[in-house]
Nucleic acid binder design. Structure first.
Lengths: 221, 221
DNA sequence: TTTCTTGCTTAACACAAGTTAACAGAATAT
DNA sequence: ATATTCTGTTAACTTGTGTTAAGCAAGAAA
């Protein structure tokens, strides 16, 4: 959805070259009906559009979809315009002239915002360790019929180990992620947790938490 | 976290004038330790910082927290710098010179990205918890044929837990939202409510309220 | 070997949270 | 007006969790 025929077409074609599917409209009214029809993943709007301006279009789109990312791409670079853009629910505001590379990283940034929570859920939350089954959310470690309840700390450390299966997990990374502070005492505390986890995992000799002296730990299974 | 003493201070003071709480660091290393200590809602980084540059700092922060918004504010406006910034996980990239108004709307835009889903869920008033059905407005918890009436307090706490499903719900947040005051006695009172809720939810072992020592509770189902 | 460092293990400890019951005030019923 | 029930708070005691310390074991360096 762009104004100047030439620039709009250039953007459209550049994006298509990089694998984006683009719906290009030359005025605000057709922009809105195109939005309704195609339900795009993201909207790039100019402000100065014929028939219905970009600000109004953004408002209309927001009424239909509170979450779709809206980026203004416009020559109107005055602060009040930028502020208005954001206040109408835009997620970014790019001033002309701009480079295609910058436009693309900004598009990707806004696309990935919305998948943020999904990504988080993607982060693995359940693991099979040899004959054990570990569920991070429930904080339980199952072995055959018996179930061992883990504390939050235990579960966090075990999850970090599992995510780094067969690779070295640095002590400092665990300390920063779990304790938020890498100091001597927390490091000693972590030793204690490693001992506990090894005890819990002792029933299957295939599963081992190996030490990498001076660096960290590595789980193998 | 800024470089030029003067500009950084101006930004800090402008933001404070508008009610933001600002932690200003003059080099990358202190920026990182300040991040660990204060867990800010958003990070504004310059690229050219003494000791540890802003790109590296951004990477370090991303390792600790995959979701906190990071905005680069910098004089380095070349496209490759912008691209690098976004690739390291930045959420916006503002080029100097900029207006405070623009900075503020961009900060707000990034802050609201992350709270978007939470806000939306804040409105949720009815939940399915494993085999239970919980209606916040009616203050009832249904299990199969039987219906348990909840008190207002019980319903409020259960709702907060549900909204934060599989995430840790901080004690202080509950105390502030439900009691309006986070003190020792209210905290003990909250313990009693947690015990009650666990009893009510005991019929489905899939539903559990887990404790996270020193922080709060997490419901899983 | 000796010496130094790093990691392992156990136990004691402090404090956070769990449980139960008694209590007090408010709301409701008699 | 009085009794009863409901709701939330307070208290006392128990249990759970994470930290600290101390001694020992294993590796690396001298």
């Amino acid at each position: 959805m762009e104004d100047e025929l030439s620039l709009g077409l250039i953007v459209k074609e550049s994006l298509e070259t990089r694998g984006f599917e683009v719906n290009y409209c030359q005025d605000g009214r057709s922009g809105l009906s195109s939005f309704k029809e195609y339900k795009p993943d993201i909207c790039l709007l100019d402000i100065m559009l014929p028939i219905k301006d970009g600000f109004t279009l953004a408002q209309d789109i927001r009424k239909l979809d509170a979450r779709v990312p809206i980026i203004f791409i416009t020559a109107r670079s005055q602060t009040p315009d930028v502020v208005k853009g954001f206040e109408l629910g835009a997620n970014d505001y790019i001033k002309k002239p701009f480079s295609m590379e910058e436009l693309i990283v900004r598009i990707k940034a806004r696309l990935s915002d919305n998948s943020g929570l999904i990504e988080q859920q993607d982060a693995q939350r359940s693991f099979v360790l040899g004959k054990y089954q570990f569920n991070y959310d429930k904080q339980v470690l199952d072995f055959q019929w018996k179930e061992k309840k883990l504390t939050h700390r235990e579960a966090e450390i075990l999850r970090l180990l599992c995510i780094h299966r067969n690779r070295v997990l640095e002590r400092s990374l665990v300390l920063d992620k779990v304790w938020g502070d890498d100091n001597f005492f927390n490091a000693r505390s972590m030793d204690v947790f490693i001992t506990k986890l090894r005890k819990y995992l002792a029933d299957d000799p295939e599963v081992e938490i190996l030490n990498v002296r001076g660096i960290g730990y590595k789980i193998t299974y």
